[in-house]
Design a protein around this nucleic acid. Sequence first.
DNA 1: AACGGTTATCACAATCCTGTGATAATCTTC
DNA 2: GAAGATTATCACAGGATTGTGATAACCGTT
Lengths: 223, 223
Amino acid sequence: MLKILVVEDDWEMNRSICYILEENGYETVPAHSIVEAQKVYEDGKADLVLLDVNLPDGEGFGFCEWLRERSRVPVLFLTARDLEEDALRGYELGAEDYVTKPFSMKILLKKIDVILKRSREDQGQIFDDGFLRIDLIRARAEAGGKDCQVTPTEFRLLREFLAHRGQLLTYDVLLERLWDEGNQFVDRHALAVNINRLRGKIEDEDHRYISNVYGMGYQWFGQ
Amino acid sequence: MLKILVVEDDWEMNRSICYILEENGYETVPAHSIVEAQKVYEDGKADLVLLDVNLPDGEGFGFCEWLRERSRVPVLFLTARDLEEDALRGYELGAEDYVTKPFSMKILLKKIDVILKRSREDQGQIFDDGFLRIDLIRARAEAGGKDCQVTPTEFRLLREFLAHRGQLLTYDVLLERLWDEGNQFVDRHALAVNINRLRGKIEDEDHRYISNVYGMGYQWFGQ
DNA sequence: AACGGTTATCACAATCCTGTGATAATCTTC
DNA sequence: GAAGATTATCACAGGATTGTGATAACCGTT
């Protein structure tokens, strides 16, 4: 489950934010000061940090910097201070967003959802239906629960398909992007062989992902 | 230069946004309706789309969907309609942000900057000082202007280092993340060999990136 | 239905990749 | 500064990877 660190000194506010987040399927850890937040973070990291600016032992900006020195966890500022310069400062420190109170909880939830999805995509499975799971950072694929050894070339194909799901990728485009020379005649066959090998690893009678468009190229289906 | 497509039916507003963007080093293309925007986009893509919701020939949401069918170009809604449901709809369509008028131009510029930086990181060189350039999506590295053939293992090392620049990566951490078994004794040597090979490819007398911390692990320096 | 072009599949060989072993260089600590 | 441990470097061999060739299956058109 995804864990959100909520740094907010108003206990009532903190509790209600945590409550709503938990109702929406997140795990939450509350902190009411910078020191507490640091301790909590070092204990068990977090997937996202909701951060107030006004805290009893300093400004949230400082904690944000402290975080940036040790990780790239996304930070979302959540504050009553509606000053342009504060927002700018937040963004400069690498925050994902700067939301001022009062705010719509629905929109906050949506933003959190978007940020977490994005940060997972940055480092992790950009693709995961029940059957096939592809981990872009580790260059690994899993089909039907079993790790299928994807070779570098096959993985480049996967990445290309996932970056343009649903779109037709012509032979020329694929050849150019994977081999960086437009070897038109000869290597169209090599491409077919690699597609074939990839299919053999990730497909199934019930799970087809790559389809051929006669005379044109290939196309990725699914999600 | 990065190109921004500005879709806004109010000509005066459009012109002034474009003007400010250009002053800040972007290339801009104006469009005043959905049809125009579609035509302009098909001509020459864009790196980011600023999108109004109220347009003479429909709502911006439709154009956003149209875009999503052909690419993942980041979209930033920019609109006078300050309705919760509209913002939610925008985010659901995969927009990066939903800004309501009136807005601070400084903050808008900052947001654009952040979004563009992020989207470049998503797909491209996450690392580029003058000497070394690493393209994370194509799994390619270039040192001193020459393409150096990085093998899969070497590239996994690179990715790990870049994801945690400046931080000490212990042997155990590296072994676990690259080989997903904690082979402590035997493979510490294999790791050293791979580090050595990687260094041979990307380093130089004047350009050192990976440094050893005696008895601990390795660490990435630079940017 | 038959033909020509296109794609799929399989086996093979050259190449590349990568862990191991041996040895040299380097660093810590005393 | 010397001993002992740690890291760097080099060569090698087993194994994985990938393009090529041959053949079968497939598709669209006539």
